[in-house]
């Protein structure tokens, strides 16, 4: 029996509360894959679901799609309880879980046609979607002759075939070459611009940073950071300002005299001050006749924050 649904958060497309998933081991004991995860994914844009291998990303996605039964907690997707009401919203959800699995001895087109027919989607839509992911000229070839990138694109085509509001993509860039990764990135951007919500799990952080509006970082089955990319970046090492000036020694002295926490970094300087102090710094240096050649926020990248927040990627194991 499903519990009565709580009030849905306005504009939340995915809500996860206290999600826990344990796997019993044959030799006794339990492996905790997800340990009390709370997460809200707002409607629209691209949401990055980040974490090292074994952090519980795929298990969470499997819980959302009712492929695995949570040990505790609840998942709501498009307002429906995943355990009970998923069939009522499944037509609005497109998904890839890990490697897209399609019949290797069928053509790409036949695979999509068979899936589409479940929802009464016609052959024209299949042709359109194959065109869209750049597989139209290989549509009649059997899938086992496809490269990994082509299979990935075929999986995305299958996910898009329903014209979904929500796309759940689990590691869509896995195994792709740089060109393939860029293709996927551009496709995700286009899909988000069309008004869809894209929930993308990945450990390729540079890619995520370029396409995501919001991210959540998962480690050992728990969410350790969530919010806009900027908010999450600010949870990393302290932000500051990075500047270049023609005479860095003099500039360093001037800034320290002005009470700022400035340090030398090669031929540049770092100042541990918020970006709002940029005007003050400019004035201090200008008063000394020193003029900036570069001034920008000294912000950690997502990879640095990710590594800081997810230092131990080993899945927590609890003996019983």
């Amino acid at each position: 029996m499903c519990p009565p649904p709580p009030d849905r958060s306005p504009m939340a497309i995915i809500e996860i509360e206290g999600l826990k998933k344990e796997y019993r081991r044959l030799r006794g004991g339990v492996t905790v894959a997800v340990a009390g995860l709370d997460l809200v994914v707002p409607e629209g844009g691209v949401f990055g679901f980040l974490g090292p291998n074994g952090s519980g990303k795929t298990t969470t996605i499997r819980c959302l799609l009712d492929l695995v039964r949570p040990t505790a907690g609840r998942c709501r997707i498009l307002g429906a309880e995943a355990r009970c009401d998923l069939p009522s919203v499944i037509r609005r959800i497109g998904s890839i879980v890990e490697t897209p699995a399609l019949f290797p001895t069928f053509s790409g087109k036949l695979n999509l046609q068979l899936l589409g027919r479940i929802n009464g989607i016609g052959a024209t839509s299949v042709d359109d979607i194959l065109e869209r992911v750049g597989l139209a000229d290989r549509a009649d070839d059997v899938v086992k002759t496809y490269s990994l990138g082509m299979r990935q694109r075929l999986g995305i085509a299958a996910a898009l075939l329903k014209d979904p509001e929500l796309l759940i993509l689990d590691e869509p860039a896995n195994g792709l070459d740089p060109a393939g990764i860029k293709e996927i990135r551009d496709l995700i951007k286009r899909l988000a611009n069309e008004g869809r919500t894209v929930f993308v799990s990945s450990h390729i952080l540079s890619e995520v940073q370029q396409v995501c509006d919001r991210v959540a970082i998962l480690t050992r089955g728990r969410c350790v950071a969530a919010g806009s990319v900027h908010e999450v970046l600010s949870q990393g090492r302290a932000t500051g300002l990075f500047l270049r000036v023609e005479r860095p020694d003099l500039a360093l002295s001037a800034l320290q005299t002005a009470g700022l926490d400035a340090t030398r970094d090669g031929d540049a300087l770092r100042v541990a001050s918020p970006p709002s102090d940029a005007a003050f710094i400019t004035k201090v240096l200008a008063d000394q006749g020193l003029y900036l050649t570069e001034l920008r926020p000294d912000e950690a990248d997502l990879e640095t924050v990710f590594l800081e927040l997810t230092q131990d990627p080993v899945v927590e194991e609890v003996a019983v």
Binding site: D66, G94, P100
Partner: peptide, 18 residues
Amino acid sequence: GAEWSHGTIVTLLAWEPR
């Protein structure tokens, strides 16, 4: 058996979860 060995059961359940 082929559905399980190719993993297509997951794809199928993403279209019909019942």
